[in-house]
Amino acid sequence: MPMDTAVQQRNTLEGQLRRDTVLWRYLDAAKLFDFFENSTLFFCRADHFSDKFEGAFTPSLREQISRAHACGEIGYDYEQFKRRMRESVFINCWHRNQDDSAAMWALYGKSDCAVALTTTVGQLADVLEGISEHKTSIVRVEYVKHWRDPKLDVSPDYTRIFAYKTKAYEYEKEVRVVVDRSGDEAGPPADPGIVVPVDATRLLRSIVIAPDAPPWFEQLVRQSAGRYGVRAPVRRSKLATDPI
């Protein structure tokens, strides 16, 4: 491992992200109440995303990996290398925006009874610092056209490939937390994801209610937040405001 978790996070923030950048995570009601109850974030295993380009290498990088295998520098051929890495990396996704997004409500809220948790890059980094023995980084996703063989920066190691997605997803404006468990002696976990405990009171900047949520749902969220000791303000989306 080239760096410990805390150092890796700080270096990532210095190079790509401002600590005051606002992040959004859109949730349906079931996931919200699971968050209230358990105070965990879910990290999806990289090979369980629907995007076929997730963790995809460009032709140049594929050739580089194949050449390293042929020379005996690594013990896996390209397909084995890609599969093992996708099985060993776990990702938690956020939307980078100052305000909420109608598209994100439709895609990830999935119903009128939905919310968005907001935080900042700095709060997220502080909550995650030192929480795992595995290498953890916070990266701003760059959107590329893989088929044009763009030059991708995969230093200090190949897990940086998860900082790139295909251009078709550019509207997501994604910031992701990447946990690398490739060093586990027992091999990659078989589960489709892992949960990481967090301090909700330190993580949350606000809780935003979906613009079309019924009044009873807003009241339920407010009551539940108070019951669980969540001090972050609860407000309705500005998209619900009637124009003047």
Results as ranks from 00 to 15, higher is better:
Leu17Pro: 00
Glu37Leu: 14
Asp28Gly: 11
Gln123Val: 08
Trp24Thr: 01
Thr201His: 10
Asp51Lys: 01
Asp4Ala: 04
Pro192Gln: 08
Pro156Phe: 01
Ala114Trp: 07
Trp105Pro: 02
Ser101Asp: 14
Lys173Met: 08
Ser132Asn: 05
Asp112His: 14
Val177Glu: 00
Thr118Asn: 12
Val115Thr: 12
Arg19Ile: 08
Gly55Ala: 06
Val178Arg: 03
Tyr108Leu: 09
Leu203Val: 09
Phe162Leu: 01
Arg25Ser: 05
Asp184Arg: 13
Gly187Tyr: 12
Leu203Gln: 00
Glu129Phe: 01
Pro188His: 07
Arg84Ser: 07
Val195Gly: 07
Phe90Asp: 04
Glu54Thr: 13
Gly226Asn: 13
Pro192Arg: 14
Thr136Ser: 06
Arg18Pro: 02
Thr119Met: 02
Arg25Pro: 04
Val175Arg: 04
Trp94Phe: 15
Leu117His: 00
Pro233Gln: 11
Ser137Trp: 01
Met85Thr: 07
Gln9Phe: 06
Pro192Met: 04
Glu133Gln: 13
Ser111Ile: 00
Asn92Arg: 01
Leu128Arg: 02
Thr159His: 04
Gln98Val: 11
Met1Trp: 09
Val196Lys: 05
Glu79Trp: 12
His146Asn: 09
Phe36Arg: 02
Asp34Arg: 15
Leu61Phe: 03
Asp112Ile: 00
Met3Lys: 08
Cys93Phe: 08
Cys44Tyr: 00
Val178Ile: 15
Arg236Thr: 14
Ala114Gln: 05
Ala46Asp: 06
Glu63Phe: 07
Gly229Gln: 11
Gly187Phe: 13
Ile91Tyr: 06
Val89Ser: 00
Ala30His: 10
Gly229Lys: 09
Asn11Thr: 04
Pro211Phe: 06
Val177Thr: 13
Gly183Tyr: 05
Trp216Pro: 04
Gly226Ala: 13
Val196Pro: 02
Glu14Tyr: 10
Asp157Glu: 11
Pro215Leu: 09
Glu37Ile: 08
Leu41Pro: 02
Gln8Lys: 14
Pro188Ile: 07
Leu61Ser: 03
Ser155Ile: 00
Arg83Phe: 12
Ala213Gly: 06
Ala240Trp: 04
Val127Leu: 09
Trp105Leu: 05
Gly229Ile: 10
Ala190Asp: 15
His69Phe: 15
Pro214Ile: 11
Met85Ile: 08
Gly193Trp: 02
Ile131Asp: 02
Asp180Tyr: 04
Gln16His: 13
Gly183Lys: 06
Glu54Cys: 08
Leu117Gln: 04
Phe49Glu: 05
Ser101Cys: 12
Val177Ile: 12
Phe42Ala: 12
Met1Cys: 10
Tyr158Phe: 14
Trp147Asn: 12
Arg181Cys: 13
Glu73Cys: 02
Asp112Cys: 09
